[in-house]
Write a protein that binds this DNA or RNA. Structure first.
Length: 541
DNA sequence: GATCGGAGGCCGACGCATTA
DNA sequence: TAATGCGTCGGCCTCCGATC
């Protein structure tokens, strides 16, 4: 038809030169996380990589990767990605790749259609202007007709489910940004959305921090769902908060520990120090024993699902190694200063693996590694932590855990801001949690509140790092000592909810703790736990 | 006048499924 | 179980019509 004829005619729009958009022209200064990290690879680096590829660096496990890394200065994981992508470029393009529907919020213009045809015929962007300018009136008219036809068609047609979904997604995203913008202006807002076309009952929440507190304290969301004749328990409308799941797993682990003969609670610190060894049987595949707060939602749910299968076996005599004062350990990620705390890395667990171990001084790799087990080096016989001194000889290529690096960077950032605010040492999360200290964190990205970095998701970590320069802490005096001060325990009660949730912030409890002097006995006390009136409970009695 | 958003391709990053 | 392959995402390129 008409469209086809236009397409045929556009064949003669072929161009002579093959310009390509070069990513090397892109700003290469971004070492930060301002946007998604993308490693610029220069032409010379590519040449080196291609040369290594020709010499056999054709798979991720190739020993030539290290050579290439040295030659190019690129991290090994970047080279691994490059290999995969480069191999793909060598293959002929996949024949029938389904075309994803695109959401055109505006009607396509004659110019847009010309661009489509021109670029489809290997034309380049640089030439478009020239070609469009020199396009004959007749051809231009045909594009106008096609645009008008498409516009008319779109008007008469019903939206396909795919396009509808795209459209909804786009609007929700816009709403989310609007809520965030309003929040920055000090406006608390809530948006609840329910899609009538969805078989599954799902209420999308978009709310500011304060408004989220309101939702938590009321049954609004559930009422909203019920309004649409939906018999839906709260659980199906809203996921169980992560911190509740953490608590349940904690209880489970403590119970299993006691069943195995342990006393009290599972001693994560002793595990970490290697003073005790616990074989955890029945854990879901891929999940190892660690402090429950280090699991994500999915893992927590899996652990709870497998609760009955899980059992612990305590081997107090199998002490792997009690580390001496080791300089490598001094730089560790803040092994607990407060009782009950544990490192941000995973707790120690035994493994049945009996591979050989060799020292590695690769700090970058060590920073990414999760292991925490002590072994003697087969070469120098020194004992050391896998994560600070060793790599496993059998697996030279370690899958990088970028989140760990991000967590660490945020930890350092927070500690730095804490010191800039006059604090000493490291940010005392436990004191925050207990409400013994209050910190106003200014400049944090919208929707993110101060909490232990390991509770942030990857996206939040990146946003925090992005806003690093804007962030400042203001340490308020400790509550009990300075009458008249008020404090909020908000920092202590956040949850690490799924990034997929539209909910911007999830504040489980927001307790106003205001210190007041009793009108009778003049004793200072917490408003929420002692006072109803200007008299404390004792004086009221 | 400022801003948005469309075109198609490139390519690094990443997650998941498959394979050895 | 580690390695590999593949699909997908997202940011970027340039230019300019449409819209506010």
């Amino acid at each position: 038809m008409k469209m086809a004829s236009i397409k045929e005619e556009s064949e003669d729009l072929m161009i002579e030169e093959d310009f390509t958009v070069k990513l090397e022209d892109v700003d290469q200064q971004t070492g930060s996380l301002e946007k998604r990290e993308r490693t610029p690879i220069s032409e010379s680096q590519k040449e080196l990589l291609k040369a290594c590829f020709q010499e056999g660096m054709k798979s991720v496990g190739s020993p030539l990767i290290l050579t290439a890394a040295e030659a190019t200065g690129l991290p090994t994981f970047v080279i691994e990605n490059w290999i995969g992508n480069y191999k793909r470029t060598l293959k002929p393009a996949s024949a029938m790749r389904p075309i994803k529907p695109k959401l055109h919020t505006r009607d396509l213009s004659p110019y847009n259609l010309f661009c489509r045809d021109f670029l489809r015929n290997k034309g380049t962007l640089k030439d478009i202007k020239k070609r469009w300018g020199s396009l004959g009136e007749e051809k231009r008219q045909k594009y106008k007709e096609e645009a008008a036809m498409l516009k008319a068609e779109a008007k008469g047609q019903q939206l396909s489910p795919e396009l509808r979904e795209l459209k909804i997604k786009k609007h929700l995203k816009q709403l989310k940004l609007e809520v965030s913008s309003l929040e920055q202006l000090g406006v608390e807002s809530v948006i609840l959305a329910y899609d009538r076309h969805q078989a599954k009952i799902e209420v999308q929440e978009m709310s500011s921090k304060g408004a989220a507190g309101f939702l938590d304290s009321t049954d609004t969301v559930n009422s909203f769902a019920l309004h649409f004749n939906v018999i839906s328990p709260v659980d199906s409308v809203r996921k169980e908060p992560v911190d509740v799941l953490v608590k349940r797993v904690q209880d489970l682990f403590n119970q299993k520990y006691r069943e195995a003969g342990g006393l009290g609670k599972l001693p994560y610190q002793s595990l970490l120090n290697g003073n005790i060894t616990i074989d955890a049987l029945g854990l879901p595949s891929g999940i190892i024993l660690k402090k429950p707060s280090f699991y994500g939602r999915k893992q927590l749910e899996e652990v709870l699902k497998a609760a009955e299968m899980i059992s612990f076996h305590i081997s107090p005599d199998v002490r792997i190694y009690s580390p001496p004062a080791d300089p490598t350990f001094e730089n560790e990620d803040q092994c607990p200063e407060e009782p009950g705390e544990s490192c941000s890395s995973e707790a120690a667990v035994t493994t049945a693996d009996d591979a050989s171990y060799f020292c590695s001084a690769d700090d970058e790799k060590n920073a990414l590694e999760e292991w925490r087990q002590w072994h003697p080096c087969k070469t120098c016989q020194h004992w050391s932590h896998l994560d600070c001194g060793f790599e496993k000889a059998k697996s030279p290529v370690v899958s990088p855990r970028r989140e760990h690096v991000l967590v660490k960077r945020v930890q350092e950032l927070f500690n730095q801001k804490y010191r800039e605010a006059g604090g000493l040492g490291k940010l005392p999360y436990q004191s925050l949690l207990n409400g013994n200290i209050t910190i106003d964190a200014l400049g944090l990205p919208s929707g993110i509140i101060l909490k232990k970095p390991s509770f942030y998701g990857r996206k939040q970590l990146e946003e925090v790092l992005k806003a690093a320069e804007m962030i400042s802490f203001h340490i308020k005096d400790q509550c009990p000592e300075e009458p008249g001060e008020s404090c909020s325990s908000e920092a202590a009660v956040t949850t690490a909810d799924d990034a997929s949730d539209f909910r911007i912030v999830h504040v489980e409890k927001e307790t106003l703790k205001e210190w007041r002097a009793c009108g009778g006995c003049q004793q200072w006390s917490l408003l929420d736990c002692e006072f109803e009136t200007s008299l404390c409970v004792h004086c009221q009695q």
